[in-house]
Structure formats: structure tokens, C-alpha cells
Amino acid sequence: MKLGVFITLTLSCQNNNQMNEKFEWGETISCPPGYPVDVYRGGLQSVDGGFTSLYLGTHSGIEGWGSEGRSMSDGKKTVPNHLHVIWLSYAEDCFYEVDTDIDYEKMVKLFKQGYYTPSSSASRPEPFKEKYNRIIVGFAPGGTVVVWLAGVGRQIEIGSYQGKKATIPQDQIDQLDYPIKNIFDPEYRKNILKNPGIVPKEIQEENKTQPIPFGLWDSYRKKYNWKASFKLPDNGISKKIIFYYYNGEREILFGQSEINKYVDIPSELKWNNLKKPPIPKELKISWLNNNILYVGEIAFNEKEIFSAFEEVFREHPEGKAELIIRVNNAQDDASILLSGNGKEIWIKDSVIEIFDTSKY
């Protein structure tokens, strides 16, 4: 056998083995609050013929864009490389279809790597390995589709895709059985949007006066060169930082006390690693001060935080910035400043809560 043929066959075998490799995961769908969806048909497809349906019932999205819904088929399966779904957008009263390849190689790499996360156990303080176990497919108005890979405390965007409006032939509808046939009933669709368990009353009222913000969920995906900086009083030292981003991603990062203790923590999991994340929606930080553990939580005002980032990076889109969180001496409040590219903008409308855990 010639060497070239042997190499080709070897690579082919390796590729086939990778395509057949299985990981533990379950499927779920997501949508933004106020914009419920129902998958009519379709799901995730694998090269080996595997298929995982995304027909999972009505999803409300109450928990937020990127949040998980129900799952029907947790187990060891091959990784999908294709997405083909037809879904109903209740708020738009129309169907969309997406038929696209998805980033198989990226998902396989992440499934194999897993990730480290800080421990919350006093008896086992060492960082421990977690595995990704969810593939989430999000559907937003305008036909926006996003795929995430998620695990405990971590969610990574795999890709964004664009669906097209679809029409379901009447003869196909006539052959359907209930309950799936319900989604073709105009009264049923209206009742879904009036159901406070699916669309909360306050969102129903907002949607009456505001148009659907098409393109909003694509804008969430914009990323900037920034990092957070924490100014803690006395001898305070950060332990763990959790970021929730508007684009649906989230991550747990190791604080300085953990970095000092465990030298092998990957750089991308360190709190002070400058990278290019999206805009934060919420962050949580825990820190130690005189052997007392404090926990701070910040929920950003969407209009304010987006406006601040746009202003700081307007003239220097590839510049760098710091989001500086300075905790006061009483350790019951904090100030927030976005600084970079010659500009400083105070973030004043966030909801800030700080807890002294020794009191609970």
C-alpha cells in the first residue's frame, strides 16, 4: 500500500471515530421573555443518523434569553452537526424555518475539554472538573437562532443563525392530531399571549405599547475588549466571580485567593484575564476580608450599561476598558465606573446587594 493511501485511510478512520464519539447531553430550547415559541417539527441531526427532536412544548422564556427549558432525551449521544427546525413565534403570529450546519468541531472540542470551576465545599476546596451537558437552541423574533453549549455555571455560544419565514400547507395541517394541531388555531395563539404564566402581566402591558425590538438579540452578541476590576476595602481578596452576559453566555471565574492557591488554573478562567466578552447583565462576586466571606450581586440597567459601552468604545472600537467595582469601607454598597479610551462613565442605575455571610 502506498504511504499516501495509508495516511488517507488512517485520517478517514480517525474522522469516523470522532463522528461516532458520544457524550452525555440533553437538548432544550430558549426564547426571550414575552416572546414564547413552539417547535412544530425538527431538531438536531448527527452525521451517524442520530436525531434529537426539539418538539418540547411551549417555551415561555420567563427565566431569560439563553435559559434552559425542559429536556426529553438526556443520555449518551453523538454530537449534532446540523439543525433543521420549523417553529412558531407567537408574538409575530408566524412560522420560521432554519436549516443549517452548526459548529460540530467546536462542540466536540468543548465536550472533550470540560472546564474547571471553583469549589464551594469546605471539605473539598480544590477546583473540580465539570462537563458540558446541555445543547440549548434559542429562538428570538425576526428568525434569530442561537445555539449554546452549557454546563453547571458555564454557557458558551456555539453560533448564530438566521431563519426564514415559513408557510405550512393546509393539507399538512389537516392531517395533524392534537395537541400539536392547536398551534394552528388563531384563538389558541391569542390565549397563549394572554396567559400570565407564559407572558407575565407586566410584559403583556409593555408589549401593547412597544414594537417588537427586531435585531436586539443580535446586538447582544457584540463584544468589547474589557475586564472587571474589583477594589475591595482593607485586606479583601476576591474568591469567585460569576458573570451573566446579555447574549446568554455565563461563566464562573477564579478570584485572586484561588489563583494564589492553585497555580494550574487555565488563564481563560482567571478573573483578571483580558479578553473580549459581551456586555454583562449581572455579576456576582465573593471575597474574603478578615476571615469573613462577603457576597456582592450587581444587576445592570440595560439601557445604561449598553450606552456606557457604546460611548467608551465609539471612537476606539478595538481599544480597552475596565469596569471598576469599588466596594465601600462598610462593605454594604459599591460604586461602578467604566473607564477606557480616555473616557470615564459612572454606572449609577444598577441594583447592588452585598451580604456578610457570617450573619446568616
Rank of each mutant, 00 (worst) to 15 (best):
K2H: 14
Q14W: 13
F23K: 02
W25C: 03
P33M: 10
G50R: 08
T52A: 13
L54K: 12
Y55K: 09
W65G: 13
G66A: 10
G66Y: 10
M72G: 07
M72C: 07
D74N: 15
V79W: 08
H84A: 15
W87G: 01
Y90Q: 05
E92K: 05
F95Q: 06
E105R: 11
F111D: 07
P118E: 04
N133K: 11
W148V: 06
L149R: 03
G151V: 05
G153D: 02
R154I: 13
T167V: 14
P169Y: 06
Q172Y: 10
Y178C: 09
I180C: 01
I180Y: 03
I183N: 01
I183E: 03
F184I: 05
D185R: 03
N191Y: 04
L193N: 03
Q204M: 07
E205K: 10
P211K: 10
W217C: 11
R221W: 03
K223M: 11
N225Y: 15
K227L: 13
K231F: 02
L232A: 00
Y244C: 04
R250G: 03
L253H: 01
G255Q: 08
V263G: 07
V263Y: 13
S267F: 15
K275V: 14
L283E: 05
K284W: 11
S286T: 07
W287E: 00
W287K: 00
N291K: 13
I292V: 10
L293Q: 04
Y294Q: 00
V295Y: 00
N301W: 00
E302N: 01
S307Y: 01
E311Q: 13
E315N: 15
K320G: 00
I324G: 00
R326K: 13
N328V: 02
N328A: 03
A334S: 02
A334Q: 00
S335P: 04
S339Y: 09
G340P: 09
G340H: 05
V351S: 11
V351R: 12
E353H: 05
